[in-house]
Design a protein around this nucleic acid. Structure first.
Lengths: 247, 247
DNA sequence: ATATGATAGTGTATAATTGACACTATGTTT
DNA sequence: AAACATAGTGTCAATTATACACTATCATAT
């Protein structure tokens, strides 16, 4: 038992984990018929977990949990993510605190939400998540969510769309070696709108931050595309001097 | 006494209140020699309160306090601001949660920070604040701050500078009737850099959102400038259709 | 071998936006 | 009447954004 002179709210972290997933894959997640996006056959998806406890037992929810009393907020988000999904290396950015008094029927709970991005090419999360009744849902085919998680998710999507325009955040979704088509398709999947191929490539290459490699993609049933690498070191250096990405 | 099965952190709100203040004015705030900015004789300032209790007794801190157990976060921020400074109508935007485990030596305290802007032309806060040992400090002449408030303040300043470029947030600092000079000077004070007069005016007027009135400014020792009004209704309408401010 | 399908890769012309730059006008104060 | 302080105004060059369509290459199917 822990006592306080004044009532204290509980504090949790919740993560909106975005990924680029193909047609299906989420463990128990039953999926509606796919409305193919322009996104290279991959959708912008969110990782959800099916609750097995009340309240909202059976409903889908954002992965998250209570912050330990001596734990940093970001550390709590990373821990919960690893516990619930096995995900490790990922992009993590704080979205904000959500604290409407009645958002949890049990007690006052203030949650700090994080926006996370996982690279599903290098780290297939599916295996780890299948165990725990988790699933990837395309952002335009979401199930009903527990608590106020729909509001948090909407805020995360807004933030992701805003961020993709002024930070090279697309690469968080992709492997180290990428084709320009993948970059474009991913950007389109995030924004939900098509982009002009020639203009997109021109602008991307003009930054000098995406460098061609001596390699082409493999195992494709068509002409193989050149592979490129995003020069993060150089970007970080430029950024420190005031350079701003703009896509 | 309030008991919980698991330990709960305390939750507070803290406000970074920005204003546009002239040379001096803060109650007990002793000010260094002014390095005049380009900002029309007014500086971008932050409202701070001198603590009278430990920890950090005597140090300057952001206004803020504990969130009541059934109180919305934003409501708590507004309440604390009114209690401590008498400020009412203001712009308020959540900055994020700050929760490093040892940021408060007493117990685990997670704070939700807000960025606020007060219009010191219409609501002179000075009177109310003088009573409580508060003061306005120019952002480049800050005293040492309690807790991690320096970090929060730096984040707020970053956010303010980013926001001023893509939302018409300058007008939150200003009276309803403004001169173009005031708008420019305020923008410069926020960004901390000078802007080209003709280009600034051209761009501002080109939006069609700042409309000239049949009035000129008064009591100035030089040619009086035309007064203008920011058309917020029209902006909100355009914004809903995808329009983006850009300064 | 040949045809088909799928994506790679490339350039130009026009419009819109940004940025640099300096003088005259009007009112107040001395 | 002179000095001052700020208002108010336009052009040109450079950059950036946009619209737009065809040939090249590779794998696969016939």
């Amino acid at each position: 038992m822990f006592n306080y002179q004044y009532p204290h709210p509980a504090v949790t972290v919740d993560c909106v984990v975005f990924g680029l997933d193909d047609a299906h894959s989420g463990g128990a997640a039953q999926r509606a018929n796919r409305s193919t996006t322009a996104a290279d056959g991959r959708d912008l998806t969110v990782l959800l977990i099916q609750r097995d406890l009340d309240p909202y037992s059976g409903a889908w929810a954002l992965p998250g949990g209570f912050v330990k009393i001596d734990e940093d907020l970001e550390a709590a988000a990373l821990r919960e993510l690893e516990e619930e999904t096995g995900v490790r290396d990922l992009y993590l950015d704080q979205l904000g605190a959500f604290g409407t008094p009645d958002r949890d029927p049990r007690e006052r709970v203030i949650t700090v939400a994080y926006l996370a991005i996982v690279n599903l090419f290098d780290h297939p999360v599916t295996a780890a998540t299948d165990a725990r009744n988790a699933g990837w849902f395309p952002v335009d085919e979401l199930p009903r969510l527990a608590f106020d998680h729909d509001v948090i998710l909407a805020a995360a999507l807004d933030r992701l769309r805003a961020t993709v325009r002024d930070e090279p955040i697309v690469f968080e979704f992709l492997p180290d070696k990428v084709t320009l088509r993948q970059v474009q398709a991913t950007t389109e999947a995030i924004l939900g709108e098509p982009l002009d191929k020639r203009n997109f490539r021109k602008k991307l290459l003009a930054t000098g931050l995406i460098v061609p490699l001596d390699e082409v993609e493999m195992d494709v049933a068509h002409r193989a595309a050149q592979l490129h690498r995003f020069d993060r070191e150089r970007y970080d250096a430029l950024r420190a001097e005031g350079y701003r990405w703009n896509a």
